[in-house]
Design a binder for these strands. Structure first.
Lengths: 344, 344
DNA sequence: TTTAGCACTCTCGTGCCGAGAGTGCTAAAA
DNA sequence: TTTTAGCACTCTCGGCACGAGAGTGCTAAA
C-alpha cells in the first residue's frame, strides 16, 4: 500500500489526471511527451507495469494504454491529490447567489443542489436540515371551511410540518385557537418522550391532536427529514461512461429512489464527523448498485440544532479535486445558514 | 385527413398497435399472419403504400416494414383508439393507495407522481394544487430565538407558505402574536389587490410584514405553485428509443428544468378545460425540445378553489390508451381531494 | 378489385485485412 | 544496478465485401 517510489507516485498521479481529463487510456509515450518527463517512455512503461502489478492501474486490453483502477483512484484521492480549494471568484459567485436567496430555506436547498450539480457537472442531492431530537415549539390550528382543519407544527429548529385532519363535527376557529393555545402551554419545549409522558387530562380533540403531533415529530426525526432536493440528473446522461446499457439507469435509481438514498446516507455519512467529506469510489465493494459511480458526501449543520446531508453522484472518472472542494464549500455555507437561523 | 377507407383505418390501427408493442417496423406479411386478416399481404402492401403516401406511415428504409409517423399517431389517438379505461382491479389498487395516504397533501402528490410513473412506465410530473387568485386566510408569526422570525401564511385554499425574516431588534412572542392578530383581522379574506388597497395605518413592523405577505401571495399565484413532484425519471432511460445520443438528455431536461416545464404547461394545459386530457405527440411542430417524446397532460382541481397540473412524458412509441386513462383517473382522484379539502 | 409471383433493394451480421497504438522483453548504454 | 533504445508481438478499429433475410413495388392473372 505504501511502498511506492516518488517516481511511481508521480506517474500514477499523471495517469489519473490525464485520464480524468481525456477519458482515453493513457500510454507511456503520450505521458512523456505531454508532461515533458525527464525519463524515457521505456522507464515509464516499466513503472506502469509495476503499478499494474500492484493493482493501481488496469489495461482494458493488451495493447491499449493504462486506466486507473478503483484502487488507484482511492490512492489518488487519499494520498496524492492534495488539498484543493475553489478559486476565489467562484466562491464569491456562489456566496453571492446564496445571499440573493434571502432566508427562505427552500430556496437555499434548491440553490445548493443547483450549485453542486453545476460546479461538478454531476447529479446532486441535498436533504433539508432537521434535528435528530425534534422539540415542540408551537402549534397552530386553522379552520379551512367546515370540518377540515389545517394543523401547522413548528419545531424549535425551525422545521415546519403541516397536516390536514378531518373532525367528526364542525368547530369554530375560536375553539381551535383555544385548543392550540392550551397545547402550546402544555408542550412548549418538550420532545416526544416528554409529551407522551405528560399526564395532563385532555379532552377528546386534544388527545387526537396530540397523537398527530407525536407522529409528526417522529417522522421529522427520520433521517431524510421531509424533503429531498435533487438537481443535475441530466448530467448523468452526458457522461460517456454511463452510456453503456444500464449504467445510467442504476445511477439514476440510486438518487431517485428514497430507500436506496436513505440507505446510502445512513451507512456512510452518519458515521462521518461534521466537517468531513466522504468519498465513495465505485461502491467500495459494498454497494453493488454504484459499481461504476463515485459519490462525494458531506453532512452540514450543527449537532445541537439541525443537520442535513448533501452530496454529488457522478462517474468514477470524476474531477475529484473540484468536486470535493465544492461539496465542502457548500456544506460550510449551509452550516452557517443553520447556525444563523438559530442565532440570537 | 378523413378520406380513409374502413380497411385503411383497420390496417393503420394494427400497424400502430403492433409497433407500440414490439418496437419493430411491421411488414405486410407479419400483419396478415399475426392478426389473421381476411385479405392477402399484397392487398395490405397496397394499402400501406397509400397510407405512406398520405403521411400516416413511414419506412425507415426501402426494405424495412412500416412505422407510424407522428401524423399517424395523432390520427390514431384522435380517431381510432376509442375510449379505454383502466381495469377495475388496477383502479381499486390505486384508490386504496391514496386512501392510505390520509390527508397529507405532500404524500398525495408524491403518490400521484409514483402511480403515474409506474402505470405508464414513463417519467411523471405533478404540481401541487394552488389557486390562481390566492386569498389571505391567516398569518402566524413565531419567534425562533432572537431576531429571527418565522412567518407562516395560510391561504383560503389551504396552501401554506413559510418564510424567515430577520428583525432589526428582538421582539417577544407576545408582541408578535399581537401583530399577527391585528393583521389577521385586517386582511382576512382579501386578495392581493385588496390588501394593497387597504389603507389602515400600520406601524413599521406591520408594514414590513405586509410587504412580505403580498410578495408571497404573488409567488403562490405563479403557475407552478411552489412544489413540483417528479418520479420515474429512470424510465426515460429504459426506453430504447431514448438510447440514441442525446435523446434521453433532452427529455430529462424538459422535466427537470423548471422554466422549460413551466413553458410547456403554460402553453398547453392552461388552454384545456378541467376534465380533458391533452396529448402532445412529438412536439407537434412547435416544441423542438421534445421532438421524439410524447406528453400526456391534464389539469385537476376545481376552478374556484385550486388547480394543479399532472402529466407523463415518454417516448413517442407509448401505450397511449393506458397512459391517457391513467392520467385521467389520477387527475380525477386529485380533483376529488381538492374538493374534499374544501368541503364543509 | 384482389392476389400470386418475382425481381429488386436495403439492412445487418460476419469475416477479413491493414493501419495504428502500445506493450513487454532483450540487450546495450550509463 | 538502472535506464534506454529497439523490435517483435498483440490487440483494436475502421473499411470492405459478401450472403442471408426481409419487405417492397410492380405486373399480370384471377
Amino acid at each position: 500500500m505504501l511502498n511506492l517510489t516518488e517516481r511511481q507516485k508521480q506517474i500514477l498521479a499523471l495517469v489519473i489526471r490525464d485520464y480524468i481529463e481525456t477519458g482515453q487510456p493513457v500510454g507511456s509515450q503520450r505521458l512523456v511527451e505531454v508532461y515533458e518527463l525527464t525519463y524515457s517512455s521505456a522507464t515509464v512503461r516499466n513503472e506502469m507495469g509495476a503499478l499494474t502489478e500492484m493493482g493501481y492501474l488496469r489495461q482494458p486490453h493488451t495493447s491499449a494504454g493504462r486506466v486507473p483502477s478503483e484502487e488507484g483512484y482511492r490512492y489518488f484521492v487519499g494520498q496524492l491529490m492534495g488539498n484543493t480549494d475553489l478559486p476565489v471568484p467562484t466562491k464569491r459567485m456562489i456566496v453571492h447567489q446564496f445571499y440573493q436567496a434571502g432566508t427562505d430555506i427552500e430556496r437555499w436547498m434548491r440553490l445548493a443542489a443547483s450549485v453542486l450539480a453545476h460546479q461538478s457537472q454531476a447529479a446532486s442531492v441535498v436533504t433539508a436540515p432537521h434535528s435528530d431530537t425534534s422539540v415542540f415549539k408551537h402549534i397552530e390550528l386553522i379552520n379551512t371551511r367546515g370540518r377540515q382543519v389545517l394543523m401547522v407544527l413548528v419545531m424549535t429548529n425551525g422545521e415546519i410540518r403541516q397536516q390536514m385532519l378531518a373532525l367528526a363535527e364542525p368547530v369554530t376557529q375560536e375553539q381551535l385557537s383555544q385548543v392550540a393555545q392550551r397545547l402550546n402551554n402544555l408542550y412548549q419545549g418538550l420532545n416526544v418522550e416528554n409529551i407522551q409522558a405528560s399526564g395532563s387530562p385532555l379532552e377528546a380533540l386534544e388527545q387526537d391532536i396530540t397523537k398527530l403531533i407525536i407522529e409528526d415529530i417522529r417522522q421529522s426525526s427520520h433521517i431524510l427529514g421531509s424533503e429531498v432536493y435533487r438537481d443535475g440528473l441530466n448530467h448523468v446522461l452526458d457522461d460517456p461512461e454511463f452510456s453503456e446499457e444500464g449504467g445510467a439507469r442504476r445511477a439514476l435509481r440510486i438518487i431517485e429512489e428514497r430507500p436506496l438514498l436513505e440507505d446510502l446516507i445512513t451507512r456512510t455519512v452518519l458515521s462521518t464527523e461534521l466537517g468531513g467529506v466522504q468519498v465513495l469510489i465505485g461502491g467500495e465493494g459494498t454497494y453493488e448498485e454504484l459499481r461504476d459511480c463515485s459519490v462525494v458526501l458531506a453532512r452540514y449543520g450543527h449537532p445541537d440544532l439541525a443537520t442535513g446531508t448533501l452530496g454529488v453522484l457522478g462517474p468514477i472518472r470524476m474531477p475529484y479535486g473540484r468536486t470535493i472542494s465544492t461539496v465542502r464549500f457548500v456544506a460550510n455555507l449551509l452550516s452557517n445558514l443553520v447556525v444563523d437561523l438559530h442565532a440570537e
